[in-house]
Amino acid sequence: MREIALDAVTETVARLFEQACYHLPEDVLLALRNAREAEVSPPARVALDKILQNVAIAGRERVPLCQDTGFSIVWLELGQEVCLTGGDLCTAVNAGVRRGYADGYLRKSVVKGPFSSRVNTGDNTPADIWVDVVPGNELKITVMPKGSGSENMSRLVVLPPARGRQSIVDFVVNCVDEAGANPCPPLVVGVGIGGTTEKTMMLAKKALLRRVGVPNPDSEDAGLERDILAGVNRLGIGAMGYGGRITALAVHIETFPCHIASLPLAVNLQCWCHRWAEAVL
């Protein structure tokens, strides 16, 4: 067994949320620069210029890229040879969220009493915490501060299997079309196919964690990614919805086997400000 102190988990979670909110991952930045080069629409080019300026200012001055520093999602891949010491895991993760959002001047955007009082919890907790137990003696921590401009535009459907591949393309493209300017395009489109309803939603969310521009290793899935991306970029929405050819930077699909009677499909949209960070303890 390898011991990992939960104090280290708390500190790592805190620093990862700060990092994610100030610094865009390199692959996302590169995709945005490429979009700026490829875009032909003048207003969309202006929007992309402002986006790129914003990225530079946020990193330099340690001001959050976006004021919506999101709901705090934390994925933990816990090696089964790890022994966590000094408390309990979820408390330690929430303490990290509390510390990171306070130290980093990040906005606290979580309310309790979702359909009634909607009172701010004051520290952005509770986090949305997911733990996978995996082989090994390490702990991988991945954080995503997920803004609601894009999250609110996510969709879940269970399609009749007989409708097949084209119905998937149509549903995802339509989802992006209906979302329009709201989710802050150019987007990264996470798509989950298969599993059960909760499984496919998680596939869609975790699909966002693949580096932008890296296709699914399965050639069928990669082909579907290309077809959906082409469909999305025919919509004309463009950066910030000002009209343009680049509505999405990438489409990422993850699949899982499903029931003989089902074809679950989930779409999780991510804004251009695709923030996440990870570390291994």
């Binding site: 402002k50 300026q53 200012i57 946020a58």
Partner: peptide, 13 residues
């Protein structure tokens, strides 16, 4: 009027 979504650091200036 539309401001650029997500450009909070730029707009703060």
């Amino acid at each position: 009027l539309g401001a650029v979504g997500g450009a909070g650091a730029l707009i703060s200036r």
